Simulated assay, not measured.
Amino acid sequence: MEWHDEGIVLGSRKHGETSAILEVMTAAHGRHLGLVRGGRSRRLQPVLQPGNRVTLSWRARLDEHLGSFQVEPVQLNAARLMESALAIHGIQLLGAHLRLLPERDPHPGLFTTLEVVTEHLHDPDMVAPLMARFELAILEELGFGLDLSRCALTGATDGLAYVSPKTGRAVTHEAGAPWADKLLPLPSLISRSPDRINDVEGQLRQAFALTGYFLHRDVYEPRGMEEPTSRAGFIQALMRSVG
């Protein structure tokens, strides 16, 4: 068995004296692991760092085997990411989210989104909405997508202000007003037609409270998991950068 693809490094761990097991998110083969012989060498260690973009050749005798990677660098982002606490927590959080998906399941759209988020991890203004939308995309890929395109009660596409915690569907400000205390705020930060953002910190808290609610209810709790510590670290670093 053999394939060639591009990927973004999510992490690696030692294997034996000289090798490493590499975890990558690939364009066509999903999240994939493989053995890199000599992965702890001076030449390869800098390449196998989270956030780097690489080309991969994977070989194994059988498809279900771990297999081995041949890795070549395309874009070395890790050194830049290591300069920022926000970026460090961000790349760790992206990896934690992607590990919610079955290994080797292709998610080409999600890979494209990952590329964009990784490029902007050091920029608080850009990465905030990108990460919130990445969490929405993860929910969608897991089968728990939210419908934020139109009002569940009126069908309107403008003025969306709330999300039902039961159905995950958007509601306009006017239609949702009688139940406002039972609905989740839908910040313009992640709505499809964002208004001018005045309270950035408040918008960020609402955005990650919204995605966090559905991640906990539909993913973490049913699997008996705790929220990854990198999520709290990312949000805290983000708040410090906009505070």
Rank of each mutant, 00 (worst) to 15 (best):
G212W: 06
D125Y: 05
L210S: 01
E221D: 12
W179V: 13
V116W: 00
D147F: 01
F214W: 14
P185F: 05
D158Q: 14
M225L: 15
P185E: 03
P129Q: 08
A152I: 13
T154K: 08
V163K: 08
E135L: 12
L139V: 09
T211D: 12
E115G: 15
T157F: 03
L215S: 03
S149C: 05
M225G: 13
Y220F: 15
A161V: 12
Y220I: 07
E201W: 08
S164T: 05
F134V: 05
F134E: 01
H216Y: 00
L186H: 04
P185D: 00
L189S: 01
D147E: 15
T172A: 00
K166F: 01
V127W: 03
R223E: 03
M131K: 02
R217Y: 02
Q203Y: 00
G145W: 10
R223V: 04
D123S: 00
D195I: 05
P165A: 04
A137D: 04
G159K: 12
Q203D: 11
L184T: 07
M126F: 00
D123W: 08
G176I: 11
D195A: 14
A161I: 11
A177W: 09
G168M: 12
L210F: 07
D195C: 07
H120Q: 14
V219R: 11
H216S: 10
T154W: 04
V116F: 08
F208A: 00
D123R: 08
D147C: 11
L184G: 04
A161M: 13
D125R: 06
F111P: 07
L210H: 02
H122P: 02
L146N: 15
C151Y: 06
L142Y: 07
S191P: 02
D181S: 15
I190E: 02
M126C: 01
R217Q: 15
P165Y: 01
A170V: 02
P165R: 13
W179K: 11
E141T: 10
L183N: 12
V117H: 06
T118W: 05
G155E: 12
G202N: 04
Y220L: 14
L186R: 13
D123M: 10
D147T: 09
Q206F: 07
E141P: 10
S193P: 12
L114Q: 13
E226V: 14
L142K: 10
G224N: 05
A170H: 12
Q203G: 07
T118M: 06
R192L: 13
S164G: 09
R169T: 02
E141C: 09
G155I: 05
A175G: 00
Y162T: 01
G155Q: 11
S149Y: 07
E201S: 11
L184K: 02
G168C: 10
L148V: 00
L160C: 04
K182T: 14
F144R: 13
G145T: 14
Q206G: 02
T154A: 03
D123P: 02
L114I: 10
F214Y: 14
L204T: 02
H120M: 12
L146P: 14
M131V: 07
G202P: 01
D218P: 04
E141A: 15
